[in-house]
Amino acid sequence: MGYTLNFNLIWRHFDKLWGGLLLSLELAVISIAIGIVIGLVLAVWYVSAGRVVRTIIAGYVEFIRNVPLILLVYLVFYGVPTVIDLAYSAPTSFVVTLSVYSGAYLVEVFRSGLEAVPRGQLDAGKAIGLTPWQRLIHVRLPTMLRITLPALSNTFISLFKDTSIASVISVPELTYGAQWINFNTFRIVEVYLVTTAMYLVTGYALLFALRLVERRFRAAR
């Protein structure tokens, strides 16, 4: 063991990691927000649609779930601009990719939640004269949300970690910052120790915040 830990160089370049973490969070938040919209719209559409629409939505979900994210990232960043004349930055390209990716996972979460809403609640909504749209907003979605919150939290944490893949197209997020420091200082152990700690702490902070939200909803049951 001739290797002695020396964190000085890491702290000198810490802004690369800190700025990277903030960008990771930004990528995750924007992509998840868009993914939630995609997921909700498609899930609601799925449960009320006929076979053709269901097959198409299921096809989208199956495709995304069976292709590694890193390939999708390459495909969107290098492939799409080659085929159609469209220029976009690496961060934009990644946000598009992660949104479509998270959308597919969230469709599944929301769809199973919607289907788990007890029939009797929907009947009760009908019986007091709510229209289909009102039943969706005031009966089905609130119950679906409470059913799906635990699964949602796990999906969000997992999507936050997936932002590390943006490093392969040089988006300066946390993992990219770690690689940069490694190339420039050769303190490989130190930089990945610190980076791992940053992912862990952020992940746990997110989980803690989401569990608090869950508990509030659970109390309302």
Binding site: P118, G120, A124, G125, A127, I128, G129, L130, R146, R221
Partner: peptide, 30 residues
């Protein structure tokens, strides 16, 4: 159909209250 159903009240064997709403909230929704 919704307007017609509002003229008929129904009480269910399994209660079917909206679980996210209070007792008053359940009554106020309609």
């Amino acid at each position: 159909l919704a307007a017609m159903r509002a003229e008929t009240g129904m009480v269910f064997q399994s209660f079917n209250l909206f679980p996210h709403l209070t007792a008053a909230g359940n009554i106020m929704l309609g």
